[in-house]
Write a protein that binds this DNA or RNA. Structure first.
Lengths: 209, 209
DNA sequence: CCAAAAATGGACCCGCAAGTCCAAAGCCGG
DNA sequence: CCGGCTTTGGACTTGCGGGTCCATTTTTGG
């Protein structure tokens, strides 16, 4: 079925995905025309539809997956080794460095806001990315708890969720304000709070209507 | 100049903006055609271009401003009166309730990801919204410091930035996962951390390369 | 070296939706 | 009640860009 790709074909397909991804990062999803991708990758319309029979839809989906994977890869090896405070801060620095460098050209932005609405599968890709990301953070917290660096009362799942939210929001605000301040603040305060090792995690009962 | 609008004209213009906003919330920016807005608001193409000479661009900008204002209005009167812990939690509950109800239909999503790229001015609108939002939170923190409910060493600006980031990320994750967990976690942990009233805010020097 | 299959190029089609235009109402002040 | 405005309606134009098609070249396996 899916196996009918020559070595050369495989290469071309990859080139298209990478080129389209770059183009999208640069100009945003709905600014990018198939023609742009063709020009940027040195391919013809025939090839595009040869490798992506579903047209733009399919291509976008492939790009989405590509970008989602890249997000986590860019955080390695730190993300998978959150086993000491220096490691955590190295990860923090990597995140800030990466997003600062990337600036406004955010694949996530395109993924969520735009691709999300279009391709039904893109939603799943983003969701999957988020869960994988959060799981990695959770693992890190659990490991720190096993070494006694984080208080055992902390709800690892929940703390990871909050941290991930801070990161996403920080990046979002970087996109609109152009400043990393929010990302830095969110990372530093949340990690600092873990480091202080108390249970901030108060059960949200009282004010519930 | 800008004054050539009858009472009736004013009403029609407002009707168009409100209708377009609703339509966009429901279906997303780039799914909405002028024709949809016309149908939904009982207007004709002539009127659209009469009131928005810049066409879709201008209409989108007006909608963006309308939605941005609404975001803050929806948090009142809580947001402007973060003067006690119960008030803070009432605000928290309002936020969660609002975004839970709204679900996937997020104006921000459209604003940032989509309108942002298109209209250059939309970026400014979002940025303005974020600063106003953050300022309100900062005021709340400062007030709590004045009453001794939050430790004076806390950097109000920075803490507000982190909290805002958590909120934005929480909403973003609500959009992709459909769960409020992240928003809840971010709010509860960050507010809880303020309430515990220590300086999580450690200077991020050490790990800096 | 030879089919068969895959890879490539690019001309063409076609629908959609933004934007234009103007003619017909409706409203307003004098 | 009149002349000129704003307001409204909707037919028409237009260009863009995704998708189709097929002819040609290259690769592959035997």
């Amino acid at each position: 079925m899916t196996r009918a790709l020559t070595r050369k074909g495989e290469a071309t397909r990859a080139r298209i995905v990478a080129g389209a991804a770059a183009e999208i990062r640069e100009h945003g999803v709905d600014e990018v025309r198939l023609e742009d991708v063709m020009a940027h990758t040195g391919t013809s319309k025939g090839q595009l539809f040869h490798y992506f029979p579903d047209g733009k839809e399919g291509l976008l989906l492939a790009v989405a997956q590509h970008e989602a994977d890249q997000v986590l890869i860019d955080q390695e090896p730190m993300l998978s080794n959150l086993t000491s405070w220096p490691a955590w801060h190295a990860w923090r620095d990597r995140l800030i460095e990466r997003y600062l460098a990337q600036g406004v050209k955010c694949p996530l932005n395109g993924l969520l806001g735009q691709t999300g609405r279009r391709a039904p599968g893109a939603q799943a890709i983003v969701t999957g990315l988020m869960w994988r990301w959060q799981d990695k953070i959770t693992d890190g917290i659990r490991h720190m708890q096993s070494t006694g660096d984080i208080a055992p009362e902390v709800d690892a799942e929940r703390a990871a969720a909050a941290l991930l939210a801070g990161i996403q929001g920080g990046v979002l605000l970087l996109l609109s304000t152009g400043k990393v301040d929010h990302l830095e603040a969110a990372l530093d305060l949340t990690i600092g709070s873990l480091r202080a090792g108390r249970r901030d995690d108060r059960n949200p009962r009282e004010a519930r209507q």
